[in-house]
Design a binder for these strands. Structure first.
Lengths: 200, 200
DNA sequence: CCATAACCTTAAAGTAGTTTAAGAGCGTTT
DNA sequence: AAACGCTCTTAAACTACTTTAAGGTTATGG
């Protein structure tokens, strides 16, 4: 747990600037409330049963959020890489135990703000209400698209759309993780890939 | 297009009060920017190809939001009934043509605020940034649950969860609409229901 | 109050996705 | 160098879900 170094700060500030410019006062208020952490591959920043106490900004690396079913199987709800936010909002705002894990797929550097510090920020600098409104709206729109795909298209098309939407992630992730995200078995994804090679 | 009548106003204000209290000034600013409309069954408040120009609060009645695929089939992305908000956020904020329809399943009374009036409201009364942040966060959490179900459980379990989560809606909606929401055919839902009757 | 469109169900045949099992390739750990 | 775990693939048998078609029932709009 360190104060953010200059490089990490820049990545965070840049991401905010894409939504609205910040005054130097706002920037200072923002940075001073975040702390930096380095996470190993397979390290957790949230485990099922714990309360999600931080909102996390990813400076580098990649995470998955997943739930485990009664049969012990993992189901990937989302991936998040550098420049993105990740948190279990349901647990974060309700302060109740989370139903999901958030785990590093690659070694990562993150910036975290605690629940109470974020609420402080909202109260002291109302501009941040807007920033986080826009962040959540963006994520909501993404999710809505995903729901539509899940109920309307085949696994093959979902896979193609995934490649199209996240070409970079598709290279970094093992296919087992992608299958879990798509809601199919790794075996079936393998079958799909085979068909696609012979009919591109 | 009328000014909101007293009853509709009360429903709207009550919904805001659940998040944070409003000053009488804020209440006035809010109400004065909404207009009331009465929508017939099967009436549209948004059609694919049009820009979504309003954020809609439902005073009474029920809507579905759906997309139509290449084969001409409808896929229900969400239902919304009295006390809830509905809008195609992607189109609303980007001001680009929408990919979805929003249609009344029952005759409805709604309150609508225009895009620019909402932005005005955000600027003049920053409290509303927070209100709408919370509204979207709530919807996001709901969607995230739905994604998890879509990738992890069978259609039967999804149906049972739907009955559990929206018992009231389940009574009001025809099964064809529910099937479309669950991502299955009406025929298969019928099969599931038959099995459930013989094994409750 | 009649016509028609929307809704629900059944069943048979077909397709999409899972399960189980087995083996091969690769990178890490001991 | 051996042993291990993780990933990817193949294939056969199985289950979940769709398609097509048909018939009966209920709403509702004209």
């Amino acid at each position: 747990m360190l104060s953010p170094d200059q490089l990490s700060q820049d990545v965070l500030i840049d991401s905010f600037k894409k939504i609205f410019p910040l005054s130097s006062q706002e920037r200072e208020a923002l940075i001073s409330r975040f702390s930096e952490r380095h996470i190993k591959r397979r390290g957790f920043i949230l485990q099922q049963g714990d309360v999600c106490k931080h909102f996390t900004f990813i400076v580098s690396g990649c995470f998955k959020m997943y739930a485990i079913d009664q049969a012990g199987k993992e189901h990937n709800m989302q991936f998040a890489a550098e420049g993105e936010w990740i948190s279990d909002l349901a647990s974060f705002y309700s302060e109740k135990p989370s139903g999901v894990h958030i785990e590093a797929i690659e070694p990562a550097v993150i910036l975290q703000i605690k629940h109470d510090d974020l609420l402080d920020l909202y109260i002291g600098y109302h501009r941040f209400d807007r920033h986080f409104r826009v962040i959540v709206e963006t994520k909501y729109i993404e999710l809505q698209n995903r729901v539509l795909q899940n109920i309307s298209v085949t696994a093959e098309q979902r896979y193609l759309n995934f490649l199209d939407q996240f070409p970079e992630l598709a290279n970094r992730l093992p296919n087992t993780q992608i299958a879990s995200y798509l809601g199919i078995t790794p075996e079936f994804l393998s079958k799909i890939r085979k068909v696609l090679v012979h009919r591109p």
